[in-house]
Computed example of a mutant assay.
Amino acid sequence: MSVSTHVLDAVLGRPAAGIFVRLYADQELIAEGVTDHDGRCRLTEDATALGTHRLVFATGRWFAEQDREAFWPEVVLTFSIAEPAEHHHVPLLLSPFAYSTYRGS
């Protein structure tokens, strides 16, 4: 399975570059990265186990670096892997007081 994400700043209408992201399988940290200039981060291309995974976005730090107030110190997206061979793209649409996500392609 490969896992990637794309973070968009919904208020400014542009990519959210520089957000630190961690990927966990259950409690084990399996990858980490930072969103690039386009707000994208490919966390792994390696196979991983079936089951529950989490993406943890350090959103509080990112907003603070921009001197913007935010309600979310971090955003945690928990998802289930049923097909390890498939690519899993998990976008995050972010604003200081709300967020949304979906399974991308």
Score class of each variant (00 low, 15 high):
residue 56 V to D: 02
residue 91 P to R: 08
residue 33 G to F: 03
residue 83 E to D: 15
residue 37 H to D: 15
residue 18 G to V: 07
residue 33 G to T: 05
residue 69 E to W: 09
residue 104 G to D: 13
residue 100 S to P: 00
residue 38 D to G: 03
residue 68 R to M: 14
residue 81 I to R: 06
residue 48 T to K: 09
residue 59 T to F: 07
residue 53 H to D: 04
residue 44 T to S: 15
residue 97 F to V: 12
residue 39 G to V: 03
residue 27 Q to Y: 05
residue 5 T to M: 06
residue 10 A to T: 12
residue 65 E to C: 05
residue 30 I to H: 05
residue 82 A to N: 11
residue 105 S to H: 09
residue 65 E to Y: 02
residue 99 Y to T: 03
residue 60 G to R: 06
residue 10 A to G: 03
residue 89 H to R: 14
residue 97 F to P: 00
residue 20 F to D: 03
residue 45 E to N: 13
residue 12 L to D: 14
residue 25 A to F: 13
residue 104 G to H: 11
residue 53 H to N: 09
residue 98 A to I: 08
residue 60 G to P: 05
residue 23 L to E: 03
residue 39 G to I: 03
residue 24 Y to V: 04
residue 54 R to E: 13
residue 21 V to M: 04
residue 48 T to E: 13
residue 27 Q to I: 09
residue 39 G to K: 02
residue 90 V to W: 06
residue 30 I to R: 04
residue 53 H to L: 15
residue 6 H to D: 09
residue 78 T to G: 08
residue 43 L to S: 04
residue 31 A to V: 06
residue 22 R to T: 07
residue 63 F to A: 07
residue 71 F to L: 15
residue 86 E to A: 15
residue 22 R to F: 00
residue 85 A to D: 14
residue 43 L to M: 07
residue 96 P to C: 07
residue 6 H to L: 14
residue 97 F to K: 07
residue 56 V to H: 06
residue 79 F to W: 12
residue 82 A to E: 14
residue 96 P to T: 10
residue 40 R to L: 08
residue 20 F to R: 13
residue 92 L to P: 04
residue 18 G to K: 05
residue 54 R to P: 01
residue 65 E to M: 11
residue 62 W to A: 04
residue 40 R to E: 13
residue 77 L to Q: 12
residue 85 A to T: 12
residue 69 E to M: 11
residue 13 G to I: 10
residue 15 P to S: 08
residue 84 P to N: 06
residue 22 R to Y: 02
residue 78 T to Q: 14
residue 63 F to Y: 15
residue 29 L to F: 07
residue 79 F to D: 05
residue 57 F to Y: 15
residue 87 H to I: 06
residue 32 E to H: 08
residue 54 R to W: 02
residue 32 E to I: 01
residue 81 I to H: 03
residue 83 E to S: 13
residue 70 A to L: 05
residue 3 V to D: 02
residue 19 I to G: 01
residue 68 R to V: 13
residue 80 S to F: 10
residue 3 V to E: 04
residue 28 E to I: 10
residue 6 H to E: 11
residue 30 I to G: 05
residue 6 H to P: 00
residue 90 V to N: 01
residue 45 E to L: 08
residue 91 P to F: 11
residue 80 S to V: 11
residue 75 V to A: 05
residue 90 V to D: 01
residue 47 A to R: 13
residue 40 R to D: 06
residue 3 V to T: 12
residue 60 G to M: 08
residue 33 G to W: 02
residue 35 T to H: 05
residue 86 E to V: 05
residue 31 A to P: 00
residue 77 L to K: 03
residue 41 C to P: 01
residue 19 I to L: 12
residue 91 P to W: 11
residue 91 P to E: 10
